[in-house]
Write a protein that binds this DNA or RNA. Structure first.
Lengths: 235, 235
DNA sequence: ACCTGAACACCGTTCAAGT
DNA sequence: ACCTGAACACCGTTCAAGT
């Protein structure tokens, strides 16, 4: 009905609308019918620019992975990787649906999408330039794999909202069934100012894990140098 | 039509059928209608034992998490955690749909399901008994979070099937666009017997990452002892 | 030749009608 | 009072009919 009809449909416009819908309403808000409706178009019109929904999801993945800030030049490998991963995390926080879709689509396709390939290629290049052996770089990519795309971690999920109600103290029945969880929740609370825990600082926890992994890789790199790659590890 | 009608419907029977369907056909094979059909029952009959599909998925999560072998007694914390995580991985390999569903449902619920809580409680107990501080245990749980449930990692996904066709050498066009990936693929191939890489040994890569993390936690634990928890880290 | 509406084969779930 | 079939509001996608 609007003048939107002027603007011709294109894959970019479709992907942009799909990403916007996902950002607003989660991945369930992305359907061929809803995208078409948002564009003032009949559902079947989308199939001129996109083969099917899987290809649409691949396009969304490429769009957001392409948003990740490029690596900054001039620092050591550890800093460069760290910044790049934190940039990836910022993208994932902007698009909460993305980690799920990236994982799903990467699993479903024979190869990752081009932007994901480019991201991986760049990351491998940083490791290699930093002096990691091919073997160690390969292991490093696997280690980062579960991390750099930020899957899960929030097993506690205490709601990041700082204005949330103070969260009821753990019911005594929980303390009885799960004493160690209860101790942890209490302990975390005491370490901080507030009486009952305001939940976890996800950014801190993410960086803790990232640094733990980077420390380990740097240690392995130095060992590699000393033992001249005597271990013929698998793959 | 069969004598199945004799066996009364129960939540256990429904969950067992749902898990079997998922094991065979993936998570898409799990629908209220298909479960009902497999049980020789009308779809609405399921709603007597299960409030809705989300509750069914929660039940499936609890069923498979409950399958994880309990911790073995008498070893140091590092070995105990290692064995437990490898047991979790074995469960995830038996039920390839599980990591996705566990993540989805854990994200959607206010608290994890009871079996997941029990698993976490047990894991926390192992860390604490091993001498990790409450703070460090908390960080450790976050670090393990993305790992112990085994999300992702397979970014390469070279098909674990050892009898797969030798995999075509990377097309020269790929080597041009993604030189670092190409180098890695070639390098991995050379390190092994075969001419072109047979893909990754996922079990090896998993254990490499796990040991990297456990090494890092053990190191932090020893540091903690020396500095008497001077760092008042967030959460 | 192009576009598109109706239709197909699915969903989870509601609800009223039948026993 | 209980059970259940039809119906509702959705899906992605096919395909034939209309321009």
């Amino acid at each position: 009905m609007t003048t939107q009809t002027r603007t011709p449909l294109s894959k970019e416009r479709i992907l942009g609308t799909a990403v916007a819908l996902a950002d607003e309403g989660g991945v369930d808000a992305v359907s061929m019918r809803k995208i078409a409706h948002a564009l003032g178009v009949v559902p079947m019109a989308l199939y001129k620019h996109v083969q099917n929904k899987d290809e649409l999801l691949d396009g969304m993945v490429d769009a957001v992975v392409g948003e990740i800030d490029p690596p900054v030049a001039g620092a050591d490998w550890r800093t460069t990787v760290r910044e790049r991963v934190l940039a990836a995390r910022r993208m994932l926080l902007r698009h909460p649906w993305a980690s799920r879709v990236i994982e799903e689509r990467t699993r479903a396709r024979p190869d990752p999408t081009p932007a994901v390939m480019a991201y991986m290629d760049s990351m491998i290049g940083i490791f290699r330039a930093g002096g990691l052996s091919i073997d160690l770089t390969h292991h490093a990519m696997h280690v980062m794999g579960s991390r750099l795309l930020g899957f899960s971690q929030e097993l506690f999920e205490d709601a990041a909202d700082p204005d949330a109600p103070p969260a009821p103290p753990p019911p005594p029945e929980l303390a009885e069934r799960f004493p160690h969880i209860a101790e942890l929740v209490m302990g975390i609370s005491h370490d901080q100012g507030s009486v009952v825990g305001p939940g976890c600082d996800d950014q801190f926890e993410f960086e803790f894990a990232l640094d733990l992994v980077l420390d380990g890789l740097e240690r392995r790199r130095r060992q590699d140098g000393r033992v001249a790659s005597s271990s013929s590890s698998s793959t």
